[in-house]
Write a protein that binds this DNA or RNA. Structure first.
Length: 520
RNA sequence: GGCGUCGUAGCCAAGUGGCUAAGGCAGUGGAUUGCAAAUCCACCACUCGUGGGUUCGACUCCCACCGACGCCUCCA
């Protein structure tokens, strides 16, 4: 895995053998989340799934920052108490995580629930001489930390900025706040330095220590957090404990908003006039200050699976341009997998999404999967074993989901080819052996899909073969009528039905043993 | 200005100091189909921003340049 601290890939060696402690910086809940906030959670959710799959016991913490200057300002503006705003926005965040299949988080501590820890941590830093109090504020003394700047590769004296609003109270402009004294009317907590609230970075140091220990394995977040947030966290914790805070720092790339229409195409830029190019380059960082939001609606429209697949198609450290075209493409690609799954269910009469039955259950770990396929004696299964191995190798190389996904496509194609070659669409050609091979191959797709958090449940409005519900009833009626017309070679009528449905974005597929439909 | 990232086909996107540079979307031809859709097969970058250099050999390493982008105490 790539380590931001050393700027190179390193083998994973955990603090405790077989265990991984992982911390991801979560949101400051002062406004609704936007799509960019979901990149880290989706990636780390996938990383946890993969580590568990690989045999580790993983403890994953995502914090909620529910006290902060922006929260105070936003709550005041809306005329509601800060905790109410925080709760509202936390609910929004959690709903979005759920919709994107981020289900692996073990702890979500809130800053306001950890005030004692935070205050204790600051006290320790003062006692050790790494921090100082001044008129109710407490600052970290950067000059006391010789290693300050190692994560972001900056030297402390090159960082002399303005010092912010509290500059007058600081010994040096590079010092940062651990505790901020409360102004009248602000939410505050009692401390040895008077009423106030924690600075931005200290909560992560305090909460990660409580839940993961003084040195833990993986700390993640967006690239934009490297400085100052993670640099400062690291400094606080290392100075406080005299040992490294984190073994591996992982940072995901940031997302950029793509304007409607084409984005970033070389030819577009070259041909664009200056006026047009400024319009065409209307892409940029997604931020709440630019009004990004409406994530719940976006997920509802696009489906969580599609967004998740879109995010996992590329490498986690690269910039992702988020736009309708990319989502559309991801959707096209994903639907081919869903068609294969439906095909399997139709041929086998089994529920791909059901778990538990011995033959259907997927390998939950690498070792299980190895064992299952080592008994394979069929050409297709040998192919599955090869593709599965390749998938694992790619995930082993810094969680390269973008490369690993390509194996999923190969798996899909191989299985479809098998079904075609064996004529499994025709019930007369099905044998228990061919169905068994099909079933085992599909379980490899299920196994690897589960690592990415994909194919875990049936997608909405994916169509069907005519059963249940009003729409299904109507569809099966139309399909029956059309079948009669086709039997009579009345193609004018049958095509009229099909074309009419196409106008409603419903596509029919005539198979050997009946007709299925799909809504796009 | 300081620190850092990126530039691979029409588009998205992996990747390696030396086998035919993954995969996807779009597209083209074929099998299949009453016609379609879906699926399968085949084709689709003698080339990896530009110019140098190192090397027996570079897309991969180094330098310069051009272009895009991030951080520099609000930010996932």
């Amino acid at each position: 895995m790539y380590n931001t601290l050393t700027r190179q890939k390193e083998p994973l060696q955990t603090v405790e053998p077989g265990r991984v402690g992982m911390y991801l910086c979560g949101p400051t809940v002062y406004a609704e989340a936007h799509i960019g906030h979901m990149v880290g959670p989706v990636i780390f959710d996938t990383i946890k799934r993969y580590l568990v799959y690989s045999g580790f016991e993983v403890n994953w913490v995502v914090n909620i920052t529910d006290v902060d200057d922006k929260l105070i300002a936003s709550a005041k503006k809306r005329g509601i108490p800060m905790p109410q705003l925080a709760t509202e926005m936390t609910m929004d965040y959690l709903a979005n995580l759920q919709a994107l299949g981020v289900t692996q988080i073990d702890h979500m501590p809130r800053a306001t629930d950890n005030m004692d820890e935070i205050i204790a941590f600051i006290s320790e830093l003062i006692e050790l001489g790494f921090a100082y109090e001044n008129e109710g504020d407490v600052f970290f003394d950067v000059s006391r930390d010789a290693d300050y700047g190692q994560l972001s590769n900056r030297s402390a004296d090159s960082q002399l900025g303005e010092g912010g609003g509290a500059a007058a109270k600081k010994r040096s402009a590079g010092d940062f706040a651990l505790w901020k004294s409360a102004k009248a009317g602000e939410p505050s907590w009692n401390s040895p330095w008077g009423n106030g609230r924690p600075g931005w970075h200290i909560e992560c140091s305090a909460m990660s220590r409580r839940l993961l220990g003084k040195t833990f394995d993986i700390h993640g977040g967006g690239l934009d957090l490297i400085f100052p947030h993670h640099e400062n966290e690291l400094a606080q914790s290392r100075c406080c404990h005299g040992q490294p805070m984190v073994r591996y720092w992982m940072h995901n790339g940031l997302m950029r908003a793509g304007a409607a229409g084409k984005v970033g195409g070389k030819s577009d830029r070259e041909q664009a006039t200056p006026a047009e190019s400024s319009e065409a380059s209307d892409v940029g960082k997604i931020s709440r200050s630019k009004g990004a939001g409406g994530l719940a609606k976006l997920i509802e429209e696009q489906t969580g699976d599609r967004i998740r697949f879109f995010l996992l198609r590329s490498h986690y450290r690269s910039t992702i341009v988020f736009g309708p075209e990319g989502l559309e493409e991801a959707g096209q690609a994903l639907s081919a997998f869903y068609r294969l799954i439906q095909r399997f269910e139709r041929l086998s009469g089994e529920d791909f999404y059901a778990r538990g039955e011995s033959e259907l259950s997927y390998a939950k770990t690498r070792r299980d999967g190895d064992a299952a396929l080592s008994r394979a004696n069929h050409g297709l299964l040998a192919e599955m074993a090869r593709l599965r191995k390749s998938f694992i190798e790619k995930m082993d190389d810094d969680f390269n989901t973008g490369a690993a996904v390509s194996e999923l496509f190969e798996i899909s194609r191989s299985i479809n080819r098998f079904i075609d070659q064996e004529s499994l669409e025709d019930s007369k050609s099905r044998t228990s052996e061919s169905l068994s091979v099909l079933r085992s191959s599909m379980s490899v797709l299920r196994e690897l899909g589960a690592i990415l958090g994909l194919f875990l449940k049936e997608p909405k409005s994916s169509g069907g073969d005519g059963n249940a519900s009003t729409v299904d009833g109507l569809m099966s009626l139309l399909i029956d009528l059309r079948a009669k017309a086709r039997a009579n070679k009345d193609f004018a009528t049958s095509d009229a039905i099909r074309d009419g449905l196409a106008g409603l974005k419903i596509t029919l597929q005539d198979l050997k043993e009946g007709t299925t439909w799909e809504q796009s």
